[in-house]
Amino acid sequence: MPHDLTPEAPEPAGADLHWRALEGLYASAPINHMFRSSLEILGEGLSRITFVAEPDCFHAAGAAHGTIYFKMLDDAAFYAANTLVTDRFLLTTSFNLHLSKPIKGGAVVAEGRWVSGRRRVLVAESRLVDEEGDEVARGTGTFMRSRIALSGLPGYAGAAA
């Protein structure tokens, strides 16, 4: 009697299912089709976005425009915070940026980490690291629960199914 020695991959459950659905939500957002980026939820309160800074996002002086810093820092912090909220989409209520080095192109990583809050308002921070390993920016945001159910959003619902 033959035995299959290849273990079956377990079905995602609980938190892991929510995290994969958040990754699907990120991938489905129209704004994210404009950039070469991807989200990975690393665990509760932790996210990583990889991004390629290309000349089409540069300002006139040849480096990434500040909107790119904001987008990547906000997204990383947002998704780190939303790992703790399984029913509602969060909204950014404030975000502080500290830019320390121009991004001249190449691979950039945004790392997000939840800091505090679990009920109505959550705080998370993020940092951007360039391909040389230098931190180029840092940010802190506050996020609040919206009335928008995650389960009603196509990118989330499709990944959670």
Score class of each variant (00 low, 15 high):
127 R>S: 11
147 R>K: 15
117 G>N: 01
122 L>Y: 04
126 S>P: 07
98 H>D: 02
9 A>W: 10
86 T>A: 07
115 V>N: 12
2 P>N: 14
64 A>P: 05
27 A>L: 03
155 G>S: 06
59 H>D: 13
49 I>H: 05
114 W>P: 01
28 S>Q: 09
111 E>G: 02
87 D>Y: 06
147 R>S: 06
74 D>F: 06
37 S>M: 12
158 G>W: 09
61 A>E: 15
118 R>V: 14
54 E>C: 10
146 S>K: 10
91 L>V: 12
127 R>E: 08
21 A>T: 02
101 K>G: 06
103 I>C: 04
131 E>L: 12
91 L>M: 13
65 H>N: 08
32 N>D: 10
95 F>R: 09
110 A>H: 03
144 M>S: 00
9 A>H: 14
144 M>G: 00
88 R>A: 14
151 S>L: 04
95 F>K: 03
145 R>V: 13
30 P>I: 10
111 E>K: 12
82 N>F: 05
67 T>K: 09
65 H>G: 05
140 T>G: 09
80 A>H: 09
41 I>S: 03
2 P>A: 09
108 V>K: 01
154 P>C: 05
19 W>H: 15
111 E>P: 14
21 A>D: 02
135 E>Y: 13
3 H>F: 15
8 E>A: 15
130 D>S: 06
120 R>I: 13
57 C>G: 00
50 T>K: 06
129 V>R: 09
102 P>F: 04
81 A>S: 00
92 T>E: 07
123 V>C: 02
74 D>G: 02
156 Y>D: 11
71 K>G: 15
85 V>D: 04
75 D>Y: 12
152 G>W: 09
47 S>W: 08
17 L>Q: 11
94 S>T: 13
97 L>K: 01
52 V>N: 00
86 T>C: 04
150 L>Y: 15
94 S>D: 15
98 H>R: 14
47 S>E: 04
117 G>T: 06
130 D>W: 09
13 A>D: 11
137 A>P: 02
67 T>W: 12
